[in-house]
Design a protein around this nucleic acid. Structure first.
Lengths: 337, 337
DNA sequence: GTGAAAGCGCTAACAT
DNA sequence: ATGTTAGCGCTTTCAC
């Protein structure tokens, strides 16, 4: 069943059918009705490939997810797919390992699939101008932004939280409750990405509090997973540890660390408090309920799509910083009482 | 940059370029080398839409995920995307709500995108012949199968666990530890799907154990989420409850239920044991570690793709039942000691 | 308002 | 082994 068949069956030309298909105004009500009828009757669907070919663009948006392991992305991906779907776009998703290059991957997809745009989930933010030149469609960075100012903000969009400030805020929450020896559970603090920003916030808070930084208390995990969080904390606890609280840069890592802490005989929050950033679903149900700064995941996905579609339709790039909300759980002990 | 440009630049005809592109043997080494060189030099990528158009098929496989909420799917989706990627296919994913019809959605995708095949994740299994007629490409059901024999097994593939038996096994584990009053935390037990199968296994175990079923002890949640599990258990605990153990049909529901149980003053496993099925990552790290039957998620995704590609390449449909592995956690108390 | 026809970039016959 | 050419199904001028 092709457009020709529909044309024949409706007794009109193919261009009229095409007009109906594309909701063009210049069709008589009479023709439109007939064509629509035939289409419905035969359950006809236009061939996407043919459309993409002639339009030299598809109705497709690419999503490149970096760092496969992060469960925190799930809700965002869902929101993105859903929103895209509503807008009549198709999402093609590709996952890449933390070490892979999202720009290269995006560039390949862009041309292979004739994408309208790209969304990067969890990427680096330090693209070089040469790299950026590979990308000829608008893109938005979801969950991160170029906080270092090396990218021209008018060339891309982003949706993120204020990672540095939120980390600062989390640590300050601990300080408010009387904690002074505060460890950080982070991933590589030097990868010019989210972990670095959150680590910086932690460091700034300590500085402001006049707490001397202890190298021993910066616990570095391999990635953002529960496993890594647990492993890193276990490793750390083999040596004497007298911090009274931990700031974890991600919920999952916190959950892993909590297990390690318990294994060492510490109970939470009696012997050691913990606060994190993310607010994944499950962390609200575990015991003790994790105290954390919740990211608005659905909004992050939705806003990313909105920004992208805005640019596709001719709008300008923009940068959104979304607020987190503190979920007061049960994992932080008040030392002042 | 099109195939014509490459042809011109290499001093050959378009068909030669096409042959090189498609790894055909009938090209002289000389030509192949030159074409490949030009392609590399100009960073040329063939237009997917044009290829799909003329081949009347794309290199695309559709994934329809039903029941957006289930976090258990994440790993499977990852495995599917990864495997598909390795095989040179592209995955387009669409999520639908629990109430939506995956077959209809798949049929639309199939024709719009000229799919090679479909994978359904978490669907119903009671398709009618009329519905199936909508699907003209091979498909595989991932995580479920038509356990009721209403579908011709040669018409589709499936990868699943033996839901009924595994549920039976889980309940028997509890019985082994001396539990007799065993509640079931399930979703709708009548939706001819996974929850029904697992509920049946529970019921069969009770029957075999000679334990009279208590209607009160079948706790029905709205869906498979932590929230629902928690809510359902909270509701149940408003009335007297003297079951010593709970069989939850999903890890997430179990985690939710654990919170509700604790809220009611019960500690786990001292006052109430709990066992589940799924084996999601996080349930191994929570406290107490959840005792559960782990599904081989990665294998389920990988195998689904293998089956599908097999059929696409002319093979026959097949049905895989994968084994679970018992993870002995800390959530089940041994009453016999 | 409508139809005829020219491509979009590619593959596959068909010649050579 | 290689080039020429006719479509694949659609959109979009351009006449009418």
């Amino acid at each position: 069943m092709t457009i020709k068949d529909i044309a024949k069956l409706s007794g009109v030309g193919v261009s009229t059918v095409s007009r109906v298909l594309n909701d063009r105004p210049d069709v008589s009500e009479e023709s439109r009705r007939r064509v629509l009828e035939v289409i419905a009757e035969h359950n006809y669907l236009p061939n996407n490939s043919a459309r993409s070919l002639v339009r030299t663009k598809s109705d497709t948006v690419g999503l490149v997810v970096r760092g496969v392991q992060n469960p925190f992305y799930t809700d965002i991906i869902r929101a993105i797919e859903h929103k895209l779907d509503l807008a009549g776009y198709t999402m093609v998703m590709r996952q890449i390992a933390s070490g892979d290059d999202e720009v290269k991957c995006g560039a390949v997809m862009e041309r292979e699939k004739r994408l309208q745009g790209l969304i990067f989930l969890g990427g680096r933010s330090d693209y070089s101008p040469a790299e950026l030149a590979l990308l000829n469609v608008p893109f938005v960075c979801c969950t991160y932004t170029n906080a270092y100012g090396t990218l021209d903000p008018s060339k891309y969009s982003s949706v993120s939280i204020a990672d540095e400030q939120e980390a600062y805020r989390a640590v300050m929450e601990l300080a408010k409750k009387g904690h002074r020896r505060i460890a950080a559970l982070t991933a590589d603090p030097d990868d010019s990405s989210i972990s670095q920003l959150r680590y910086s916030g932690y460091a700034r808070a300590l500085r402001e509090l006049g707490i001397p930084p202890e190298e021993e208390d910066v616990i570095c995990a391999d990635d953002f997973t529960v496993e890594s969080g647990c492993r890193a904390m276990r490793e750390r606890l083999k040596r004497p540890a007298d911090f009274t609280a931990v700031f974890a840069i991600a919920d999952d890592m916190a959950i892993g660390a909590m297990r390690a802490l318990r294994e060492s005989g510490r109970s939470i929050p009696e012997d050691c408090s913990i606060i994190a950033i993310d607010g994944i679903n499950v962390s609200e149900y575990i015991h003790p309920m994790l105290t954390t700064l919740c990211q608005p995941m659905t909004a992050m996905g939705t806003k990313s799509v909105e920004l992208l579609l805005g640019v596709i339709r001719g709008g300008a790039h923009d940068h959104l910083t979304l607020p987190t909300t503190l979920r007061a759980g049960e994992s932080v002990r008040d030392l002042t009482k």
